[in-house]
């Protein structure tokens, strides 16, 4: 069966977060931040392991990472982990059936109750708090 016949959207469906509302956007951010954090985590372990090679190498690594570019990456990482954590808690509660509404006889125009204000506000809050955390970390790392 060739691709065209099969007609799955493929990776394009993951890369386009602008359809189907904020919940789909949160799904997309969750993935991106998850992978981003994993990449940072691996690099972070490599970076800090330089301590085994003594003070000189450690300081060399600091020269490499404690730069404006390095700090920018850290700011991003802080934003990513804030969003990923808060949205992660929302998702875990949702997966446990908490805050996804109550089943009832559907009524036109059928607004889905799982896509409720609580969830939307939580998504906005996790984006907002991520932004605040990033501002604060800018203050800490670029301040003075």
């Amino acid at each position: 069966m060739n691709k065209q016949h099969n007609n799955r959207i493929g990776i394009k469906a993951w890369l386009n977060p602008w359809r189907y509302g904020i919940e789909r956007f949160a799904y997309w951010l969750m993935r991106i931040t998850g992978v981003g954090l994993l990449v940072y985590f691996i690099m972070h372990i490599y970076e800090t392991s330089s301590i085994l090679d003594g003070k000189e190498i450690w300081n060399k690594m600091l020269d490499l990472t404690q730069t404006p570019e390095g700090h920018l990456i850290l700011v991003l990482v802080i934003g990513m982990s804030t969003f990923h954590t808060i949205n992660g808690i929302r998702i875990m509660l949702g997966h446990g059936g908490i805050g996804v509404g109550k089943a009832s006889r559907p009524d036109y125009p059928y607004a889905p109750k799982s896509q409720n204000m609580k969830n939307k506000l939580c998504i906005y809050a996790s984006i907002g708090l991520a932004a605040l955390a990033m501002l604060y970390s800018v203050e800490v790392m670029f301040g003075e």
Binding site: I45, T48, S49, I51, L52, G54
Partner: peptide, 15 residues
């Protein structure tokens, strides 16, 4: 394993 090696050796003062 790689990370534990760093933590273990550093905390035991093996640098």
């Amino acid at each position: 394993t790689y990370g534990s090696r760093t933590i273990l050796m550093t905390s035991m003062g093996m640098i």
